[in-house]
């Protein structure tokens, strides 16, 4: 495999990791806030905070990892995206900063502060919306290279149906992934009340994820037909995604094997996300940046890959330990530890 393909695969894998763990985190924030205002917090918030407290920083690192890696493997992305995305990028950073800090302030400091919780819940939906626009921009048509540098065509983005369909997909996916996970977590905790609420949420948000995906496909056909054709060539990946979705929805609906159901949800998004990513190639930013044209020099690329492998040897056992202690330790989940 060539260096650029290894690089982009690694980065995409990390972005997928971020998609899953961050969705759980973002959705949980929304559900925690919802529970507070609908006066059901005594049931759900304990469950949510038991899971989130030890892992939230880890979530953030997935994202940092992705963009540091992207600039490392493909330095040209820094130039194009950097120049054009100053304002939207800044807004996303500020939302992430507010979310992370106010989570800590609320969780370790003032537990009953509704404003902190609101900021935490609202940013959980705004961040995926903001971040998803960078994927939209990568399809081309929203940046222009002029003699004065790269210019971001904000008007085009805000009036584009494609852009809004991506935002919709991002938000419903967050809620669906999160609800599916929390159903499973509530089940492990033998917390029947929370499980009932989360299961309802999961079912409620299941069909819209498919609906929004179809909208994105339709929008893509109008916006970047080349990419759309390449996606059709990979139809089997999207087919598998749909299949896993159906299994997941069936399991959650019939109220059994929530763990398996969540793995099915992960597979659903895995195939959709990699199908999208693979058909996006060779472009990182259409039509300016391709993976071949922008890849870092070979020495640095090789060094990054080596460090990456060594780093994984360190991280995987550590992540395993973290999950064993907090996710798969039945007594901890039940609140006995």
């Amino acid at each position: 495999m060539s260096l650029e393909v290894i690089g982009i695969s690694v980065l995409w894998l990390f972005l997928y990791g971020y998609l899953i763990v961050a969705s759980i985190d973002f959705g949980a924030g929304f559900f925690a806030y919802y529970a507070r205002v609908s006066k059901r917090e005594h049931i759900m918030s304990k469950l949510i905070s038991r899971y989130l407290s030890p892992v939230w920083e880890v979530t953030n690192v997935f994202f940092v990892f992705f963009f540091v890696g992207l600039v490392g493997f493909f330095p040209d992305t820094a130039y194009y995206y950097g120049t054009a995305l100053l304002l939207p990028g800044s807004v996303a950073i500020i939302l992430i900063a507010i979310r992370g800090s106010f989570y800590a302030f609320g969780n370790y400091g003032s537990k009953d502060n509704t404003v902190y919780l609101f900021l935490y819940g609202a940013t959980g939906l705004l961040i995926p919306a903001a971040l998803s626009t960078s994927l939209t921009i990568s399809e081309g048509g929203y940046l222009e290279e002029t003699s004065e540098g790269v210019v971001f065509l904000a008007g085009e983005l805000f009036t584009s149906p494609y852009s809004w369909s991506v935002v919709a997909l991002a938000i419903v996916s967050v809620l669906f992934i999160s609800a599916a996970f929390l159903t499973y977590y509530a089940d492990r905790a033998e917390d029947v009340d929370s499980r009932a609420i989360m299961r309802k949420f999961a079912l409620w948000w299941s069909a819209p994820t498919i609906g929004a995906s179809l909208l994105v496909f339709a929008g893509l056909r109008d916006h970047n037909v080349e990419h759309f054709r390449r996606a059709l060539d990979l139809w089997w990946m999207f087919g598998l995604s749909l299949l896993f979705f159906l299994i997941a929805a069936f399991l959650i609906y019939s109220g059994k094997r929530y763990g398996t159901a969540f793995i099915m949800v992960m597979l659903q998004f895995f195939f959709a996300f990699f199908g999208y990513g693979a058909s996006h190639l060779p472009y990182i930013l259409y039509p300016y940046i391709t993976i071949e044209g922008s890849v870092v020099n070979e020495t640095m690329g090789t060094a990054l890959v080596i460090v990456f492998i060594l780093g994984l040897c360190l991280l995987i056992p550590s992540l395993y330990l973290l999950m064993r202690l907090f996710l798969f330790d039945a007594d901890y989940v039940k609140g006995k530890k």
Binding site: S53, P54, V55, E57, V58, N60, V61, V64, F65, G311, L314, L315, S318, L319, L321, L322, L325, F326
Partner: peptide
């Protein structure tokens, strides 16, 4: 930092 964050959480 990833490494530190994991163990700090634990």
């Amino acid at each position: 930092f990833f490494f530190e964050a994991i163990f700090l959480g634990i």
